[in-house]
């Protein structure tokens, strides 16, 4: 066990955990931030996507010991009022079915739009390809990302 000081959603948080613990489980088990989802544990489904210094990162394979002073943003911290343009677009298009993967989808989409405010269809597909939606809401996800992009 070791103590880690983490910057999560703009706040300093301290946890005492095994250094190999993935950030996913630090968030979910130790900090009660359950918006970040467990899907596969091997970075193949994207449900656990967070931002690490603004970049979309799979938290299920990210040891807490590797974070240092990098800033973590989770779905809970994407916006204060739940009104990030991507979140608003998701509601506008009524994207979710079961909804379980959507936090990860939203985090990937928000990171994409930050780097590329008006992505093409192909760029959207490339950026989002690591996020599986088992309900098959891909068409709406793409529509929502286009709504939230500056091309719209």
């Amino acid at each position: 066990m070791a103590v880690f000081n983490l910057n999560i959603n703009g706040k300093q948080q301290q946890v005492d955990v095994d250094p190999s613990t993935p950030v996913l489980w630090v968030l979910r088990d130790h900090l009660n931030l359950t918006g970040t989802k467990f899907g596969c544990g091997i970075a193949m489904c994207g449900a656990c996507t967070i931002h690490l210094d603004g970049n979309a990162t799979r938290s299920c394979v990210l040891p807490v010991s590797s974070i240092g002073d990098k800033q973590i943003t989770t779905i809970e911290g994407l916006s204060e009022e739940g009104d990030h343009p991507v979140q608003q677009a998701w509601l506008e298009h009524d994207v979710p079915q079961c909804g379980y993967c959507q936090a990860g989808q939203i985090m990937s989409a928000a990171a994409l739009l930050k780097q590329n405010p008006s992505p093409s269809d192909e760029e959207i597909e490339n950026a989002m390809n690591g996020n599986i939606c088992r309900c098959g809401t891909y068409v709406r996800i793409k529509q929502a990302i286009k709504s939230a992009s500056t091309t719209n």
Binding site: L33, T34, G35, A103
Partner: peptide
């Protein structure tokens, strides 16, 4: 008439909704 998913706001903000989120 089309009515949005009542859990939509909770889903997109990561509120605890699922069994795995229960504690």
């Amino acid at each position: 008439t089309s009515r949005k998913n009542v859990d939509g706001p909770k889903i997109v903000t990561g509120k605890p909704l699922y069994g795995l989120d229960y504690r």
